[in-house]
């Protein structure tokens, strides 16, 4: 499903009028692609057929293609959100370790009584969605004084904060508890809209609300 979704996302990008018009290069971190480049299509044959029969097909045949993400696959277990989480969890480049921890945590989630009986991946997705903040406060110096200014978040930033909060909450566990067990605990808690991460999110929102008088300093 995820693979299909990624393919569809790629297609949406292709068909956006701005790209087709051949706009300007938009640099993203470490990579600058000419807007003529298209997102790599998956290897799903049905999807490819659909693309090739679309009205853009002739145009697309002559478009250069961006390098595929090394982790991307058409496996039913492929989930970009999970990969992002593993990458954020990863320390010192040890991805296999991070992956193992997450998989063990998912195993624990499955065994938990209050785990909703969901697929652990669904629990995870729900947990991230519940933990995602809408606002954050940033420290800005205006007129010689530092203010805590509430600002809106981009989707990427909000997602990162949610994942980082979960990882940090796990880091604060009591001594004998294992990382993956506590990660499972936090994920289940967050998916049930309770627990430390959710509390932290609410505190962040409360702080933003308390400083709402300074919101206009962002652009002052």
């Amino acid at each position: 499903m995820a693979a299909v979704r990624s393919v569809l996302r790629g297609l949406q990008k292709i068909s956006s009028p701005r790209l087709l018009a051949g706009g300007v290069c938009v640099p993203s971190r470490n990579a600058i692609y000419n807007p003529r480049y298209i997102e790599p299509l998956g290897t799903d044959r049905d999807q490819l057929k659909e693309v090739l029969s679309s009205p853009d097909a002739e145009e697309l045949q002559f478009r250069p293609v961006k390098a595929a993400i090394s982790d991307a696959s058409n496996s039913i277990f492929y989930d970009p959100l999970l990969l992002k989480f593993i990458n954020i969890l990863m320390r010192k480049g040890d991805k296999s370790h991070a992956t193992k921890l997450v998989h063990k945590a998912f195993y624990s989630v499955k065994l938990m009584k209050d785990g909703n009986g969901l697929n652990p991946l669904d629990t995870f997705t729900l947990a991230i969605r519940n933990a995602t903040p809408v606002l954050e406060t940033v420290k800005l110096k205006r007129g010689g004084i530092f203010y805590q200014v509430p600002v809106a978040l981009s989707a990427e930033r909000a997602r990162f904060i949610a994942m980082n909060w979960i990882i940090e909450a796990v880091g604060e566990r009591e001594k004998p508890t294992r990382f993956h067990d506590q990660l499972a605990r936090e994920l289940v808690d967050a998916s049930n809209n309770v627990g430390r991460v959710i509390k932290r999110k609410q505190e962040a929102h409360k702080e933003a609300e308390a400083n709402k008088a300074y919101a206009h300093y962002r652009y002052a």
């Binding site: 809106a152 809209n193 929102h205 409360k206 709402k212 206009h216």
Partner: peptide, 26 residues
């Protein structure tokens, strides 16, 4: 420079709503 004071109205409505709903984003 970005001179617009962006999305302040939306932010304020959100604050009002959050305060009413006891900071439940749902």
């Amino acid at each position: 420079r970005d001179t617009e004071r962006a999305c302040l109205a939306e932010m304020m409505t959100l604050f009002t709503c959050l305060a009413k709903k006891d900071f439940e984003t749902s």
